[in-house]
Design a protein around this nucleic acid. Sequence first.
RNA 1: GUGGGUAUAGCUCAACUGGUGAGAGCACCGGUCUGUGGAACCGGGGGCUGUGGGUUCAAGUCCCACUAUCCACCCCA
Length: 425
Amino acid sequence: MYQKLKGTYDILPSESDFFRYVMQEVSSIAGLYGYKEIQFPILEYANLFQRGVGDSSDIVVKKEMYVFEDRGHRLVALRPEGTAGAVRLYIENGLHMSGHTQRLFYIGPMFRAENPQAGRYRQFTQFGFELIGDPSPDADVELIAINHHLAKRLGITGVTLYLNSIGCRECRPVYQQRLTEYLTSHKDGLCEDCQMRLTINPLRVLDCKEEICQRIVRQAPLQYEHLCEACQAHFEAVKASLTSLGIAFEIDPYLVRGLDYYNRTVFEFKSASLGAQSTFSAGGRYDYLVKDLGGMDTPATGFAMGMERLAMVIEASTGKKRTDFYRPPFVYVAGIGESLSQAVWQALSFLREHGISATTEFRYTQLKKHLKSADKLRSSYAVLLGEDEVQKGIWTLRNLQTGEQIQDSPAEIVAFLRAKKEKAD
RNA sequence: GUGGGUAUAGCUCAACUGGUGAGAGCACCGGUCUGUGGAACCGGGGGCUGUGGGUUCAAGUCCCACUAUCCACCCCA
């Protein structure tokens, strides 16, 4: 038997309405904030991601990218994240020439060759929001506000927003220097991994979970205490704006982003209901990336949300299962007897033309079978079509919850159903 | 890449310390019931017990390897 690849998953027909609901809510929020959807390839030149994501990120260092040579001997990769592709799209299509800030969002599959775990897949879905061209603190705040709004809209509870500033290319090296000095002086007390991190990316030592490292880290100098004036002002403005919007946050001085391109504001939304992979949305400012990828010097900020994790959070906080979102066809058409195919088709078409979802089982001729099918599909109504109805040119409509039946002309019944359907929606 | 748990029907799980043809519930199909479903009753199909080796008179059960899956580390959405 063929099996799906490790770290991938199937969405079954009983679950797909749930995911569609989540996606619709997200794109509806995007619309409310004036974000336009963009689409870019899943497959790109591998060096776009190597540049974009950064050489010290684990995606590159630990070879978590799906990279291969295509038939033209081009080195290509399945995108491990969306920002690099979005920025490439921005630059290649000259969107900066439009003269205003670009508010973009995307949704789609991402790929990382990691070992799967609860809430972590090799193929997963992210929706990302990117705000390109605005350096203001309030641009960062807008993205956080979108997360906040979305959580509220989806009925998510028990989430915490963690916030930090990681400085800029002016103040970060100064801080890193101090941090490195401090950590080097305590090198012997650090775990093996951290001794290595010390040379690659000392910031990573900060969120090491080893107790021996934690003891040293607790005394370490903190970035947000060593911000330059401009970064300090930016960070204060973000905090002030969040406070005035009534969005609660916690400063996490050890919050560091895995991707190299971030500066200043970084944030994560975590849920206690998720297990070890508790972050379901994360983002921050990336003022250097556009230029690094060959564009003009352009400030930018954004975030990405993991759909699978978001789905788990929704289930945990609403108590609903994904199958609870299933939407059955509204009407089931039951053709009773032989040679009714034409009448059944006419009824189905008439219903569908009026926006009413309808289905049938062509293979059944007995009413009993039909009703069982309608029951299994969980349809609300059944249209009964036998020789009587066909001769008289009427339909019998059965309410499948109450068993109530009425007979009327197709036009009247469709009008009735449309009213009922609007109520149900 | 590393560590631990698990692997029996489509799903959830049984099968005493190894011992006669591997069971149940749900689901599925059919019948009781040829224009009235959800219930009940009766019947039916389905499993080389994850794969491959080994120990034994005898393996679903014990041992080894592999694979898959879950959880965790690393890291991340």
